Simulated assay, not measured.
Amino acid sequence: MAEVKIQAESRTEFGKGAARRIRRDNKVPAVLYGHGTDPVHITLPGHDTMLALKTANALLLIEVTGSESLLALPKQVQRDPIKGTIEHVDLVIVKSGEKVEVDIAIHVEGEAAGGTLVVLENASILVEAEATHIPDGVVLNIEGLEAGTAIHASDLKLPAGTTLAVDPETLIVNITTASTAEQVEAEMADAEAEAGVVRDAPTAAPA
């Protein structure tokens, strides 16, 4: 994964008022921490930060004015619940060659055998990888797999240098027999009966 350079500014103002002023200038308040250093409070350019964080686990090269450049990964991104704009970012400092734990996406490809239902139990998986070589994701091919097939974390083909950071028996995909219309109707009727729902009898058509 290529690193993305972002020019940052150090900041000395804190609190909600200061944060609002920063956002009005189309900038994002952020904090850099890790490796035993004191937290570094910075301001990031809003547009560049938004573009960079569209990629999961984006590796950022933060160039702080008047200071050394630091490699960092986004740890927590706070967004406006309505607008979706970035309000604050927590960044963890990493070193080249350092191992980190991150979630990567699972991309399912292919189609299972006919008459089956594919249930994706986990859309991502926690792995350990080098901070500067975090994979974009892992591909899982289910082409032609039959009902009764269960795919676990240990079955995933991870990129070189990447290892699982979860229980190998973690269920990823479960392939079952697809329910027929009759089975779905029966299940709905059972659920309604348990909930005490009584269906109205069908109205007879006038003679």
Rank of each mutant, 00 (worst) to 15 (best):
His133Lys: 10
Ile106Pro: 07
Ala193His: 15
Val138Met: 03
Ala129Ile: 04
Leu120Phe: 02
Asp167Ile: 02
Ile125Glu: 06
Glu185Gly: 11
Val108Thr: 13
Pro29Gln: 07
Val119Leu: 12
Asn122Ile: 01
Glu3Phe: 11
Asp190Thr: 15
Asp25Thr: 09
Gly46Trp: 02
Pro29His: 03
Pro202Asp: 14
Gln78Arg: 08
Arg199Val: 09
Asn26Lys: 12
Glu185Pro: 15
Ala113His: 10
Asn141His: 04
Asp25Arg: 10
Glu194Val: 14
Thr49Lys: 01
His35Ile: 12
Ala195Thr: 08
Ala2Trp: 10
Leu53Phe: 01
Asp167Phe: 02
Lys95Pro: 01
Asp190Val: 15
Val92Met: 09
Glu185Gln: 15
Ala191Asp: 13
Gly144Val: 01
Arg24Ile: 04
Lys99Trp: 00
Thr49Phe: 03
Asn141Phe: 03
Gly114Glu: 09
Ile42Glu: 05
Glu187Met: 15
Ile93Ser: 03
His152Val: 12
Glu3Asp: 15
Ala191Gly: 10
Ile125Phe: 05
Gln76Tyr: 06
Val40Glu: 11
Pro39Cys: 10
His133Met: 02
Ala147Phe: 11
Ile42Gln: 07
Asn174Asp: 14
His47Tyr: 12
Thr55Ala: 09
Ala150Leu: 11
Val100Met: 00
Ala195Glu: 15
Thr180Phe: 09
Ala8Ile: 07
Lys99Met: 00
Leu171Val: 07
Leu171Phe: 02
Thr116Lys: 10
Val184Phe: 12
Tyr33Ala: 01
Glu146Ile: 06
Lys5His: 14
Leu71Pro: 15
Glu192Cys: 13
Leu59Cys: 07
Leu120Gly: 01
Ala56Asn: 12
Val108Asn: 01
His35Cys: 12
Leu51Ile: 10
Leu60Lys: 03
Ala193Gln: 14
Ala123Lys: 10
His35Lys: 13
Pro74Thr: 06
Asn122Arg: 09
Leu158Ile: 02
Thr163Glu: 09
Val31Ile: 12
Ile142Glu: 08
Glu187Gly: 10
Ala58Gly: 07
Pro135His: 04
Thr203Ile: 15
Ala129Thr: 03
Glu187Cys: 06
Lys95Glu: 13
Ala52Asn: 10
Ala178Thr: 06
Glu169Gln: 09
Pro81Thr: 08
Thr180Ala: 07
Ala131Arg: 03
Arg24His: 08
Ala160Trp: 01
Leu145Trp: 00
His47Trp: 08
Ser124Cys: 08
Arg11Cys: 11
Ala56Gly: 13
Leu140Ile: 04
Ser154Leu: 06
Ala153Ile: 03
Val28Tyr: 02
Asp103Gly: 00
Gly97Leu: 04
Arg20Lys: 14
Lys5Glu: 15
Pro39Gly: 11
Ala72Leu: 05
Leu140His: 02
Glu185Val: 15
Thr55Ser: 14
Asp136Leu: 03
Thr43Ala: 11
Ala165Val: 02
Val118Gly: 04
Arg23Ser: 01
His88Val: 04
Val28Phe: 05
Val173Gly: 05
Thr43Glu: 10
Val92Pro: 13
Gln183Ala: 12
Pro168Ile: 03
Pro39Asp: 13
Lys95Gly: 06
Asp155Trp: 08
Gly36Ala: 05
Leu120Cys: 01
His88Phe: 08
Ala58Asp: 08
Glu182Arg: 15
Pro206Trp: 09
Pro206Gly: 14
